[in-house]
Design a protein around this nucleic acid. Structure first.
Lengths: 330, 330
DNA sequence: CTGTTAGCGCATTCAA
DNA sequence: TTGAATGCGCTAACAG
């Protein structure tokens, strides 16, 4: 067994409660004894047992991060960066991260077991049936998603999509296709909305034939683009709902003997780590994933400190990362 | 406050300890009462408070995963996949993951605070000065690294490198360069060793001029390859110590107007998610990252169950993922 | 087979 | 300013 508050107390000749107060800076006491206790604690190498502390204070010092399975592997995704940023922000406040993947849509065990003070839910496909029960246990912040009655942090999907599509229009394109895995998830719906807004703003009629969904399968990216190439006339530009779709589209386009961007311009969304290294480098909407993780964590900690805080939907700005797949030659 | 074991006890008319035994399946007791207690607990929606349980049993039910800062962002790296696999394996055993990034080389706070029963240390640059103190607190398993006196799980770096270099030799190459960020880290040293072994085995003399280190900077990949192109005669093939170096080398090679693989064949190491999508698709040594995470976690849990277990260095087989950058045309 | 008792390590009343 | 007492929720040794 390791050194406890009791050892420090005996060694110092005071009561355990005094040690507790000294170390936590609570109550008023003579600077002398406080200093002495701290020194002794340090000498003894005393480390508070957070389980015991948590049991007494009803706070764990942990926050949970749950990532929707759909978006894994983390290694290739959006969410690894958010996780990292969240951890950095949390640790600055003395919090630790308990992390897990949502495999089915049942709530993470560690919430029910009261291992966390609050949690971040990452993923666009998380619905009320999961969030509401969780929120009754601890405060929740949604990342990359939004539901009524829950704090949330998102990138500006509508604005980013408008930027992308307007950029393509600037390059002279009129037949611009939209490819997505699905239009069910909030992020994709919003990006689609931005796509339509841009067309409308520039007086280009919306053409349903230029929208292709690949579905939720592994080769969704190829499927969607292939559909587009099945019927004439072809689009002259592709706007992908994320980098994955855009890169898949480029692959299909190139396989069909067309050149990117000469025969078919392409823009993606996310600005993940693959965007700069594909051929040609992908122009894409930059989503500030690190900021999202940081802001979401800060929001959660603010709510922990003050549960009465009004709800907030925090939208972080996106911008266009211009490379060459759109037709620009930087 | 939520439902405790006490509520279940009162509702059932038995003692709290009886409830505890019933729910944990300890001791012998009549099936009747056990069933009844379980049913009541379920009806009441009882959930054990793991803090209290941990305090009593001196076990947290958490395992820690610490990732060396060097290899971030997780989103682009090796370690995201390992983290995910570790979480999957741990959750199967009822364990949870506390995760953090090693920013400096000080031990993770959550070990000192006794929040974990054991931990996984991911990264090739973790030294004894960090591991030994931690190991005195809880069991440690090293992943992608090895130190005397510590359990460890690695991919077969030497074997994988031999495979890669022998494959290049099969394609007729004799001037094969080795590019790495550094030769300090264990993984890279081992891959270098495999490179040399392959040359020796095929009777090709080792040429120091064909080894280039890029150093630990952001553009390490370009730097290394650029060095190689500074002096004649050029190599005809490049073996990168990881995908990052290999892809960077390809970029530089193509920028110099050379073709891959016709003028310069390239093979990488890791088989990360970028390998298949670069142009041309990268032939690379597949490292079973998911298995590494899984096996390491299982190892840790085995040791938790039986601290007397002999030390193990577990080396997982690697294989060559053949695409086109090596000169093959699949 | 089941209840009693005593901690686990710490924070927090209330007195002194 | 400090000490004594109590409780956080659960487990475990020992009786009964």
């Amino acid at each position: 067994m390791s050194i406890t508050i009791r050892d420090v107390a005996e060694r110092t000749g005071v009561d355990r409660s005094t040690v507790s107060r000294a170390l936590n800076g609570k109550g008023r006491m003579s600077q002398a004894t406080r200093e002495r206790i701290k020194r002794v604690a340090c000498e003894l190498g005393y480390r508070p047992n957070m389980l015991a502390k948590g049991l007494a204070t009803q706070k764990t010092g942990n926050i949970g991060v749950a990532i929707d399975k759909r978006h894994l592997p983390i290694g290739s995704s959006f969410y690894g960066v958010i996780l990292e940023a969240a951890e950095a922000a949390a640790s600055q406040h003395g919090y630790h991260i308990i992390f897990s993947v949502l495999r089915d849509h049942s709530p993470p065990q560690w919430v029910l077991e009261r291992r966390v003070d609050g949690l971040l839910l990452l993923g666009t496909d998380i619905g009320e049936e999961l969030v509401l029960p969780l929120q009754r246990e601890v405060p929740v912040v949604l990342v990359d998603n939004h539901l009524a009655g829950v704090d949330s942090v998102l990138g500006d999907n509508v604005g980013g999509a408008r930027l992308a599509v307007e950029h393509l229009i600037t390059h002279g394109h009129k037949r611009i296709a939209f490819v997505a895995e699905t239009l069910v998830d909030l992020s994709f719906r919003e990006r689609f909305e931005g796509y339509r807004q841009a067309l409308t703003a520039q007086g280009i009629p919306f053409d349903e034939c230029l929208v292709a969904e690949g579905g939720r399968r592994p080769d969704s990216d190829r499927i969607a683009m292939a559909k587009l190439l099945e019927s004439q006339p072809w689009p002259t530009a592709i706007f992908g709902a994320n980098d994955y779709m855009a890169i898949g589209a480029m692959t299909v386009v190139k396989a069909a003997g067309l050149r990117v961007p000469e025969d078919m311009a392409v823009i993606g969304f996310d600005d993940g780590d693959k965007a700069p290294i594909v051929e040609p480098p992908l122009t894409t909407v930059h989503v500030p994933r690190d900021r999202m993780g940081e802001v979401a964590t800060q929001r959660l900690m603010a709510r922990l400190a003050d549960p009465g805080l009004p709800l907030a939907k925090i939208v972080l700005p996106t911008e266009l990362a211009i490379r060459t797949s759109c037709g620009c030659r930087p």
